[in-house]
Design a protein around this nucleic acid. Structure first.
Length: 268
DNA sequence: CGCCATGTTAGAGG
DNA sequence: TCCTCTAACATGGC
């Protein structure tokens, strides 16, 4: 379920203990989750030392000492945790290290993916701009929005356009920008584009600072759930104007908005 | 039982 | 070609 802030929080939490270790083994209990397949991943990672841990969009990226990379996508319910004591539920894969440590990949729904590649650039080529990166300027977002005529929310969820946003933070960013999720992307007033860009970065930064959003068994330790303004708050008063938050369906995703702060026809 | 779920993709139809 | 919607993946909580 993690989006960019949750993945970033996982990266930061794992980095110190993971980087520098050498992988001794890889076990995969649900073969479809390993790309291209479990054996290729095993051959690719065994014997390799992890030289760095970073994030690209919602992918965790472990750099290996031969220039290849191990990528993990948590999708809806994936988790990474160190082994110790009794084994947690839903362990789908595990890496063992030369010092005896074990890192577990747990994933109730089995949507997560583990990939080994010698071509990181190629593997991530289809991803759009990093919303916290230097390339995410108001002009860049303006170009992305005006080139298309799509509903604003599905466009922002499209990982090939902006990489890392998910259902929570799109709703939150749109509320902070005062934009309706169904508004056509090429009809966003120019001044609102800059506000949207700033809203996206601000909400992502705040969420990272609070270690992400926790609201069920999947992801713990975050504190952003207490700061959400619309997501999961339907029926509750808008924290800006008091109007009840409304839930609608947009592109098959639950969508939350304030009808007053986010009018269908923005003023300017 | 039915509906919902922090994600992504393939395919159909307009 | 672009856009939208459905189904699918697979499981658990309410």
């Amino acid at each position: 379920m993690p989006e960019l802030p949750e993945v970033e929080s996982v990266v930061r939490a794992l980095r110190e203990r993971l980087v520098g270790r050498t992988i001794a083994g890889f076990e995969c209990r649900w073969p479809r989750q390993a790309l291209p397949d479990p054996q290729e991943v095993r051959v690719g990672v065994c014997g390799r030392r992890i030289t760095g841990l970073s994030r690209r969009a919602k992918w965790l990226v472990a750099a290996l000492d031969d220039g290849s990379a191990l990528l993990v996508h948590l999708r809806m319910s994936g988790r990474l945790e160190w082994a110790g004591g009794t084994e947690p539920p839903h362990v789908r894969a595990a890496w063992s290290f030369t010092d005896g440590e074990r890192l577990l990949f747990c994933d109730a729904r089995k949507f997560g993916r583990i990939m080994h590649t010698r071509d990181l650039d190629g593997a991530t080529r289809g991803l759009g701009v990093e919303p916290l990166g230097d390339g995410f300027t108001p002009r860049a977002l303006e170009a992305l929005l005006s080139r298309r005529a799509r509903q604003l929310k599905p466009l922002l969820l499209d990982q090939s356009v902006v990489a890392g946003l998910g259902n929570i933070y799109v709703d939150e960013a749109l509320h902070r920008a005062g934009l309706h999720p169904l508004l056509r992307s090429d009809r966003v007033p120019p001044r609102r584009v800059a506000r949207l860009r700033n809203a996206i970065r601000q909400v992502l930064r705040q969420a990272i600072r609070l270690n992400g959003t926790s609201f069920d068994w999947v992801y713990g330790g975050g504190a952003m759930q207490g700061r959400l303004r619309v997501y999961g708050r339907d029926g509750k008063p808008c924290r800006t104007c008091g109007t009840p938050i409304v839930a609608i369906r947009v592109g098959q995703r639950g969508t939350h908005l304030c009808p007053k702060c986010q009018p269908k026809r923005p003023t300017a």
